[in-house]
């Protein structure tokens, strides 16, 4: 767990870096998530005060966007593309395989905390699908063997 003082200090530093920007909330939230791995509830009042908006508005923004997490993810995040171009190359079968193999559904984390599985709708790798992004690394032309090797390394 993060200690409250560190959290508040880091949040203040992030706020200070962005407050002069027009429409600073998204850059702030991206940095908070990059720092802590998710958007801790405790940060919300601090962000709201700095931007002179309500805590509800900050919560509204955090909850609107798929990228922002309200709880930490597993140690590794596997995002499989579910969009049409990847579907045309077998993405549905591949994601069914991944869910069965990991024993989780979309947005869930394996019980040992190793892998969080998420859908992504397009990585712009549409002529070499199915595509995925694993811990920020882009991967194309996936098949079950390639995916099994990746998941084996993460587990």
């Amino acid at each position: 767990m993060l200690d409250t003082a560190t959290l508040a200090t880091r949040t203040d530093e992030i706020l200070a870096a962005h407050l002069a920007r027009e429409g600073a909330l998204l850059p702030i939230l991206h940095d908070i998530q990059a720092e802590f791995g998710y958007i801790p509830q405790e940060c919300l009042p601090q962000i709201a005060r700095a931007l002179n908006i309500s805590r509800a508005e900050v919560h509204g923004v955090v909850s609107f966007y798929h990228d922002f997490r309200e709880v930490p993810a597993g140690r590794h995040v596997v995002k499989l593309c579910r969009a049409e171009a990847c579907q045309a190359m077998g993405a549905d079968e591949l994601s069914a395989h991944a869910r069965a193999k990991l024993g989780v559904d979309w947005h869930e984390t394996t019980p040992n905390g190793a892998v969080t599985l998420e859908p992504v709708f397009c990585l712009g790798l549409c002529a070499c699908g199915p595509a995925a992004i694993v811990d920020g690394k882009l991967i194309a032309r996936l098949d079950t063997a390639k995916l099994d090797a990746i998941l084996g390394d993460l587990a």
Binding site: R21, E22, G23, A24, L25, L26, P27, L29, H30, L51, E57, G60, V61, F64, Y65, H66, D67, F68, V120, F121
Partner: peptide, 28 residues
Amino acid sequence: MEIRVGAGAYVCGEETSLLNSLEGKRGV
């Protein structure tokens, strides 16, 4: 100019929703 990064909302490709997002609001 500045580079800004979205946050995984497809609808933000719609111009008015994008503007709201850029302003730091929900991408409505």
